Simulated assay, not measured.
Amino acid sequence: MTTASTGNRPRTVRWLLRLHRPALYGWAALVVVLAGVLLAVRGPLTDAAAEGWRQYNACQGEDTACSYDQDAILRYKDWSGYATFAVTALPFLVAGWAGGALTGRELETGTAWLGWTQSTSPARWLAVRLAVPAAVVTAGAAVTVWLHHLAWSAGQGRVDTAKEWYDRFVFHANGPSTVALALAGLAAGALCGLLLRRTLPALLLGVVVTAVVRLAAEFALPHLWPAVTRLAGTDQVANGSGITVDEGYVTRSGAHVPLSHCAWDRPCADVVARFHTYQPRSHYWPLQLTTSALILAVAALLVAACFLVLRRRTGATHTAQAPAVPTGAAV
């Protein structure tokens, strides 16, 4: 590696930060606002809701009218829901920005080609545009996920309407799978920008691809760790709360059949028990880590695809062979 190429790296990073300064400020502001909301949920909102539920439970069984702080209970429910939704939406914001601004707009306006003619190879250009935002996104998403876990934990056992750990939004907002999905969204958006080279289509497609990754991860989630099975009588519900993998009936032959096997027009003479296969709370971290690893593997594949597409579009990565700036492009 030459001294010139080594010296170009800090300049490329500075240029990237300057070019996307509004997005950097916007991300920092979003993290600060979310942090404030989550701290409020963890502290005064949870305390007020817990007191409201204490008052409500104390009223049970009394004949006389009894008042309780319903507004505090509803306020906690609303703001904790807003915060959870916002945290789980972060990967989609990252994907939209990566597709629309990070690569799509730079290729559409010719800014990328301008950089390739100034001693920055396409491969280094892309590496910087993935590495620097990845560090910023990881730091911001990790902080919000950690604060969300603290806020959610504060309501457990104190607020009766607090969401369970296996809620589809709470599960991801509480752990590293959201950080992993944000990185996958960054790679997906960058890839869409490289493929489409237009701002709005790349933005939309990046969000769609990230949504597909999220749905695939949720589909695979219950099956990523050995589950627990509980049995009960045919007229009972098998115990166990968590992420349901499967449930139904057990026949005399030992086969597991779905709940639809028994209906009012189909007697269940061959059924001897009811089963429930699920992931208990003790499996939370194994599920989080395996899900995060799966999403990060997808992110790695998307990053590899980014470099492959860039190489096919630009040919050799030497700056002297970089494509010319398109006619009418902004320079």
Rank of each mutant, 00 (worst) to 15 (best):
residue 76 Y to H: 15
residue 42 R to Q: 15
residue 76 Y to N: 12
residue 61 G to F: 03
residue 62 E to F: 08
residue 57 N to R: 13
residue 9 R to S: 00
residue 30 L to F: 14
residue 41 V to Q: 03
residue 44 P to V: 08
residue 19 L to C: 07
residue 40 A to M: 06
residue 46 T to C: 03
residue 54 R to P: 00
residue 40 A to H: 06
residue 56 Y to V: 10
residue 56 Y to H: 13
residue 37 V to I: 10
residue 8 N to S: 09
residue 28 A to D: 03
residue 12 T to E: 13
residue 24 L to S: 04
residue 43 G to K: 00
residue 33 V to P: 02
residue 83 A to K: 02
residue 75 R to C: 04
residue 54 R to C: 02
residue 40 A to I: 07
residue 43 G to F: 09
residue 50 A to Y: 06
residue 40 A to P: 02
residue 66 C to M: 11
residue 66 C to Y: 13
residue 69 D to Y: 05
residue 27 W to I: 11
residue 33 V to S: 04
residue 26 G to F: 10
residue 21 R to E: 06
residue 56 Y to W: 07
residue 77 K to H: 14
residue 21 R to N: 08
residue 37 V to H: 01
residue 58 A to C: 06
residue 24 L to V: 11
residue 41 V to S: 03
residue 86 A to L: 15
residue 56 Y to D: 12
residue 43 G to H: 09
residue 62 E to P: 00
residue 12 T to H: 10
residue 48 A to Y: 00
residue 28 A to T: 13
residue 21 R to L: 11
residue 37 V to T: 08
residue 50 A to N: 04
residue 83 A to Q: 02
residue 28 A to E: 04
residue 42 R to L: 04
residue 64 T to P: 02
residue 50 A to V: 04
residue 33 V to Q: 02
residue 83 A to M: 05
residue 9 R to V: 13
residue 23 A to P: 06
residue 33 V to R: 06
residue 44 P to N: 07
residue 48 A to V: 02
residue 43 G to D: 03
residue 61 G to C: 12
residue 74 L to V: 11
residue 17 L to E: 08
residue 41 V to F: 00
residue 34 L to K: 03
residue 39 L to Y: 01
residue 73 I to Q: 05
residue 80 S to V: 09
residue 19 L to Y: 05
residue 65 A to M: 04
residue 37 V to R: 01
residue 56 Y to R: 15
residue 80 S to M: 15
residue 74 L to S: 09
residue 86 A to E: 04
residue 11 R to M: 05
residue 68 Y to C: 08
residue 44 P to F: 00
residue 51 E to G: 12
residue 66 C to G: 10
residue 67 S to R: 14
residue 61 G to P: 09
residue 72 A to C: 11
residue 30 L to S: 08
residue 73 I to R: 08
residue 37 V to D: 07
residue 31 V to Q: 07
residue 24 L to I: 12
residue 14 R to S: 10
residue 34 L to D: 01
residue 35 A to N: 05
residue 71 D to W: 07
residue 54 R to A: 14
residue 22 P to F: 04
residue 72 A to K: 03
residue 71 D to N: 12
residue 67 S to T: 13
residue 39 L to V: 14
residue 20 H to D: 03
residue 29 A to W: 12
residue 73 I to D: 01
residue 81 G to V: 03
residue 30 L to A: 11
residue 14 R to W: 12
residue 88 T to G: 05
residue 24 L to W: 13
residue 45 L to E: 02
residue 26 G to H: 01
residue 16 L to K: 05
residue 75 R to W: 02
residue 87 V to K: 00
residue 44 P to A: 09
residue 20 H to T: 06
residue 11 R to A: 12
residue 82 Y to P: 05
residue 57 N to V: 11
residue 44 P to G: 06
residue 19 L to P: 01
residue 16 L to Q: 10
residue 46 T to R: 02
residue 26 G to R: 10
residue 86 A to N: 05
residue 16 L to I: 02
residue 17 L to G: 14
residue 63 D to Y: 14
residue 43 G to P: 00
residue 77 K to F: 11
residue 46 T to S: 09
residue 55 Q to C: 03
residue 73 I to S: 05
residue 24 L to P: 01
residue 61 G to D: 11
residue 84 T to K: 11
residue 13 V to Q: 06
residue 55 Q to S: 07
residue 20 H to V: 00
residue 74 L to E: 14
residue 65 A to S: 12
residue 53 W to K: 05
residue 79 W to K: 07
residue 35 A to C: 11
residue 53 W to E: 08
residue 17 L to A: 13
